[in-house]
């Protein structure tokens, strides 16, 4: 393969994983905007999405779209239960408390998944066909196309939700100022719950569409979650367009790094980027510079 087609190939795989990171990053952003909580268990929603989908599909009783809906709604339910049982009862929420709780939830969900589905990763059949499509000198699998198009639908759907629905607008109001939102009669508590539901649902979608490409096991959540966070920070925490751009940027950088430098260090690239961004510009590429008030 010549360099150009090699680079194209990296670009394609970068865009595919970037789309996944972008959706996960949006999940972080939704919860962060509504509550200022960073949910360290975000990646487990992704893992659960994939695992439930595989389990439902393995029964052989449902067509893919039905399995998809079942999987997404059950993970959404997990998100709702998680918010009600683990986040809402916290009396004096501080960052350190919430980090520990969500990390606890994360490994708890992982433990449950390990008990239910075992330690070996499982695969999911591709949504349609397996014959690769040639693009330039590179190839594109149909599943990558699925990933890209589903992610575009999700992103557009989210934008529509924020811009054109009452609930979406209320959630944006919460992001600006929870107190002001409360004053105009928005139920902040309900918005927080919705944000967890939405975020879990989006995580699940990401987990489902990527499962045919990467296999899915009980332990994939942490890494995916962290990379989603990395994307969110890269783009500027709290900014939806930032999350999307951050996701794609991270995916491409990672694919290039893995291809051109070393695949073993692929996962380290995301974290190096994360550390560099946090150290040099914690507000990310597109986020507003934070103003600290005493």
């Amino acid at each position: 393969m010549d360099l150009i087609s090699e680079l194209t190939q990296y670009l394609i795989s970068g865009l595919t994983s970037g789309a996944i990171y972008a959706i996960i990053a949006l999940g972080f952003t939704i919860i962060y905007n509504a509550t200022e909580v960073i949910n360290f268990a975000q990646g487990e929603f992704v893992m659960l999405g994939g695992m439930v989908m595989i389990a439902v599909d393995a029964t052989g009783r449902f067509p893919l779209p039905v399995s998809f809906i079942l999987a997404v709604s059950s993970v959404t339910l997990v998100g709702v239960v998680f918010q009600r049982l683990a986040i809402q009862p916290v009396r004096r929420p501080s960052a350190i408390t919430l980090i520990i709780i969500t990390v606890g939830a994360s490994i708890f969900l992982r433990g449950v998944a390990m008990l239910v589905w075992g330690k070996d990763p499982l695969g999911l059949r591709p949504f349609s066909g397996v014959s690769p499509i040639a693009v330039g000198g590179a190839t594109l699998t149909p599943q990558s196309l699925w990933v890209l198009s589903v992610s575009v639908v999700v992103m557009a759907g989210l934008q529509f939700f924020y811009k054109h629905t009452i609930t979406g607008k209320a959630m944006r109001a919460c992001a600006f100022s929870r107190r002001a939102a409360r004053l105009v009669g928005i139920s902040v508590d309900r918005m927080v719950l919705i944000s967890f539901a939405l975020s879990a649902a989006m995580g699940a979608v990401a987990g489902i569409v990527v499962a045919p490409i990467t296999l899915c096991g009980y332990d994939v959540g942490t890494m995916l979650g962290l990379k989603g966070f990395c994307a969110a920070v890269l783009g500027g925490l709290g900014s939806s367009p930032g999350s999307i751009l951050g996701g794609f940027l991270l995916g491409i950088l990672e694919a290039l790094g893995a291809g051109l430098i070393s695949s073993g260090f692929k996962d380290a690239i995301a974290f190096l980027i994360l550390l560099v961004v946090l150290f040099l510009r914690p507000s990310g590429l597109f986020g507003p510079r934070e103003v600290k008030r005493v």
């Binding site: 683990a86 009862p89 916290v90 408390t97 520990i100 709780i101 990390v103 606890g104 939830a105 994360s106 490994i107 708890f108 969900l109 992982r110 433990g111 449950v112 390990m114 008990l115």
Partner: peptide
Amino acid sequence: YEILIFGFILMVVMI
């Protein structure tokens, strides 16, 4: 059950 229990302990104690 190890990780499950560790996760559970973390959540419950901190809540």
